[in-house]
């Protein structure tokens, strides 16, 4: 059971790393600022998931709080950039 669990979590981390790579490629390529912001938004959600999984791996409850704060900050950041792009700021 333990070995099965370890392998499963390793595979999940593999998918998450692949996801981060694809998100990062879109972040680099652009071509517009809105595209990059979409990439940041997606990377934030992926990062929250990765932090929760890391918290489980290291058995640290505090990682969930970190994930929550990261999620809130990412959300506010994306909103601010969106408002900036539509010239409302």
């Amino acid at each position: 059971m333990e070995a099965f669990k370890d392998i499963t979590i390793l595979v999940a981390f593999g998918f998450i790393i692949l996801a981060m790579i694809f998100g990062f490629i879109r972040f680099i390529k652009g071509p517009t600022a809105a595209d990059r912001t979409v990439a940041v938004d997606t990377l934030t959600t992926i990062g929250v998931g990765a932090l929760v999984l890391l918290g489980y791996l290291y058995q640290r409850f505090i990682y969930l709080d970190v994930a929550l704060v990261y999620g809130v900050l990412g959300f506010v950041g994306v909103l601010v950039i969106a408002r900036y792009l539509e010239d409302a700021l």
């Binding site: 595979v11 999940a12 998918f15 692949l18 996801a19 694809f22 997606t42 959600t45 998931g49």
Partner: peptide
């Protein structure tokens, strides 16, 4: 969940 996260990132790519 991790597969869907990957598919989302593949989608934006």
């Amino acid at each position: 969940g991790s597969i869907f996260l990957f598919l989302g990132a593949l989608g934006i790519y």
